[in-house]
Computed example of a mutant assay.
Amino acid sequence: MTIYNYEVRKANGESTTLEAYKNKALLIVNTASQCGLTPQYAELQQLHERYGDKGLSIVGFPCNQFGEQEPGSAEEIAEFCSLNYGVTFPVLAKIEVNGPGSHPLYRYLTDLTGEEIRWNFTKFLVGADGLEIARFEPQVKPLELTDEIEQLLR
């Protein structure tokens, strides 16, 4: 099984897979709207605008597991991201990233890296082959990943 086979839900509840991102570099981020790191949405959007047409896709997975900092509905989250940060990259349905209810995609990612998600805005940069995966902790700002992104896009 590859990363592209995992079923995910769009914010509207529709089921899909990550297959749409095959052959693209992918930045997967667990997000939250009421976190001290929430301004990272702005940098994620900048990366989306800079590299989206060059082969980078960004996907946000809202999560309420850390300090209950993502309490809103899918509609509220989408509206917040759009109004406050101009987000145009996909922000999918809310999931859990740790524990028995964790989403299978995040179980896969944490199994690969050997540790659970510590906080909101943990980032996984996935190569176009779906196999090369690098993890970046929340304090690493999205724009600090520019070199790694550009290397993947070559």
Rank of each mutant, 00 (worst) to 15 (best):
Y4T: 00
G72K: 02
Y21R: 06
G52N: 02
V91G: 09
A74W: 02
P90H: 02
I133T: 08
S57K: 10
F121G: 10
M1N: 14
I95H: 04
T88S: 13
G99N: 03
T122I: 12
T113E: 13
F80P: 03
A134C: 14
N30C: 05
T122R: 11
E14D: 13
T17C: 01
G67R: 07
E76F: 00
R107D: 09
L26H: 01
K24G: 03
G55H: 05
G72V: 02
A42P: 11
Q45N: 07
L153A: 00
P138W: 08
Y6P: 00
C81S: 05
V126K: 04
K123R: 05
P71A: 02
K141N: 12
E115R: 15
N23G: 09
P138N: 11
F80D: 01
K54S: 05
R154L: 15
R107N: 11
L131D: 14
N84A: 09
A134K: 15
L125P: 08
A134L: 14
K10M: 13
N23L: 04
W119R: 11
I133A: 03
P90R: 01
F121Q: 10
R135N: 07
Q69E: 13
E76R: 00
F89W: 07
K94P: 09
L112N: 00
G127L: 03
Q46D: 12
A74C: 07
T122M: 14
Y41A: 09
Y108R: 10
G114Y: 02
S33Q: 11
R118C: 14
E75S: 11
G52H: 02
S15K: 15
T38C: 02
D53A: 14
E14G: 11
V29H: 09
Q40M: 05
E144C: 10
E19S: 13
Q151F: 14
Q40L: 09
P62W: 07
I3S: 01
P39D: 04
E68S: 15
F61C: 06
I58L: 06
Y51C: 03
I117R: 06
A25F: 03
N98E: 04
S33V: 10
T2G: 10
D147V: 13
L83P: 02
G86Y: 08
Y6E: 01
L109T: 01
E68M: 14
P39L: 03
R9S: 15
E116H: 08
L109V: 04
E70Y: 09
T110D: 00
E150V: 05
L125R: 05
L152H: 04
K141C: 12
Q46L: 12
S57E: 12
N23I: 06
Q69N: 10
E68H: 15
D129W: 00
L56D: 07
E148K: 13
F136L: 04
S33E: 12
G36E: 06
D147R: 14
A20P: 08
A93E: 12
F61V: 05
Y6S: 05
R118N: 14
D129H: 08
Y4V: 03
F121P: 09
A42K: 15
L27A: 10
L47D: 08
E43M: 00
A32F: 13
F80E: 02
R107P: 03
A32I: 13
P142H: 13
I117M: 05
G55M: 05
N64V: 02
F66T: 00
I149Q: 01
C63A: 11
S82F: 12
H48I: 11
Y108E: 08
V126R: 01
H103Q: 00
